[in-house]
């Protein structure tokens, strides 16, 4: 039990470190959220106060739908679900079986930058915690 707690606290610090790197890597990224695939918030980094519990549940629904729509269209390997808006972007990316990484950026971001920063963070998280 103690070992498990210790392992969890190490994972927590690895997660926080990765999310900090992601949010500081590109100016236009203003929040990042790691949540479970079934919609529970796990960790976040944000420039301002940021409420993530509803967002975590909604990104879970959205990612699942995106993945199913891709399959229905016979396109394999859903990589990102991207929501593009007048005010900015959200990029959703699955991390392994159990996690989703969501990156929020303002409209000044270059989409390629957003996707590549999100991908790098997701891959690093996958290697370090799963």
């Amino acid at each position: 039990m103690l070992a498990e707690k210790e392992e969890n606290s190490i994972k927590r610090s690895v997660v926080d470190q990765n999310l900090k790197e992601l949010i500081s890597s590109v100016d236009s990224i203003y929040a990042v959220v790691l949540s479970s695939i079934d919609g529970h918030p796990i960790a976040r980094q944000a420039q301002d106060n940021f409420e993530d519990s509803k967002l975590a549940a909604m990104t879970s629904s959205c990612l699942a739908l995106g993945e199913k729509i891709a399959m229905e269209a016979n396109q394999n390997g859903c990589d990102f679900v991207i929501i593009q808006n007048q005010d900015g972007f959200l990029a959703l990316k699955r991390v392994g079986r159990k996690l989703v990484l969501t990156t929020l950026a303002d409209k000044s971001i270059n989409m390629g930058m957003l996707l590549s920063a999100t991908r790098q963070a997701a891959e690093k998280l996958y290697q370090e915690i799963t």
Binding site: D38, S60, A64, E67, K98
Partner: peptide, 20 residues
Amino acid sequence: ATDADTTDELSLIKNTTTVA
């Protein structure tokens, strides 16, 4: 079906849950 692996106490009852 849009099911995702359960990661909470629901996993005692079932392995996946509908999220959309």
